Every structure is written in structure tokens, then in C-alpha cells.
Amino acid sequence: MSAPTHGTLLHIAERTHWDAARDTGVSYTMSTLGRTLGEEGFVHCSSDMAQVDGVLGRFYTGVPRSDLVLLVIDVSRLDAPVRYESAGGEVFPHVYGPIPVSAVIDVRSLPGNR
């Protein structure tokens, strides 16, 4: 599906998985909560904070925010293609390959539970 491309993508990561990738320098391969890239076929991402908030509300309600981080990914540093695909009435970016640690340009805290 075609959609405007973005210079950065956002990905909600479980802190332990991101820390392991960062500490070893091995590409990040988690797709979403408890699911790997190998299981899903791509890494789920969001285009903006509105999408992040929606994903948090739908899929991460039982996870303490302190166990999560928000990865800011520089698209130009990815080796894998990004496809914008429809899910739940919205268009989300999906990365079809691992995320090199060097592509993550910022790691942020997530908004608290509402």
C-alpha cells in the first residue's frame, strides 16, 4: 500500500529485548509484544505518537510502562524494506527485516497509563 514515507519510525519495544540487542550489537528482531520478526514476518512500527498511543491502548494495557521503551528509527539506516500497510482502519509502517542497532537514533520513555 502506498503512503507517504517518513524519515523516522517509532517502535514500542520491551526494554529487556532492546537492551539485549543494544548491549550485544546484534540487530533487534522483535516484532511486537512477545512475538519475533521470524513469527510475524515484519517489525510493527508507528508513524507518529497518535498511532503509538492507540497501539499502547489496544495491545499493551497490562504491561508496565517502565518495562517498555520507544525506539526512534532512522529509515535511511535500514537494510530492510518498509511497507505501509492497512491494519485496523489505519496505515502502519512495517519493516521487513531486522533493525540494526545503528538505525535506532533515540530511545524514549513512553507516556504513562491513562
Rank of each mutant, 00 (worst) to 15 (best):
H44P: 10
P98N: 04
S66H: 06
R114A: 11
V63M: 02
V63G: 02
V95P: 12
L71F: 01
S31R: 02
S31Y: 12
G97Y: 12
Y96A: 02
T29D: 15
A80C: 12
T36L: 07
D106W: 05
V55Y: 04
T16K: 08
H44W: 07
Y84N: 09
F42M: 03
M1N: 05
T32D: 10
P111T: 15
S47E: 00
A13E: 04
V91C: 15
T29Y: 08
V26I: 15
F59L: 01
V82E: 04
S66C: 02
P81M: 04
N113Y: 12
L56P: 02
T5R: 14
T8H: 13
V107N: 14
A103R: 15
E39Y: 03
Q51F: 10
Y60N: 02
R15I: 08
V72M: 00
A20D: 13
I105K: 03
V26F: 06
T61H: 08
E14Q: 13
V26R: 15
L56S: 02
T29S: 13
D23V: 04
S66K: 00
R77N: 11
I73P: 15
V55E: 12
E14W: 04
R114Y: 14
H11G: 05
G34Q: 07
G88D: 11
V55W: 06
T16H: 12
L9C: 05
A20N: 05
S31L: 10
R35K: 13
D53I: 01
P98R: 01
I105T: 15
R108M: 15
P100S: 14
S86F: 05
E40C: 05
I73S: 12
R65A: 06
D48T: 04
I12T: 09
G38W: 05
T29H: 03
R35M: 09
V63H: 02
G97S: 12
A3V: 01
D48M: 07
P111C: 09
L68A: 11
E40I: 06
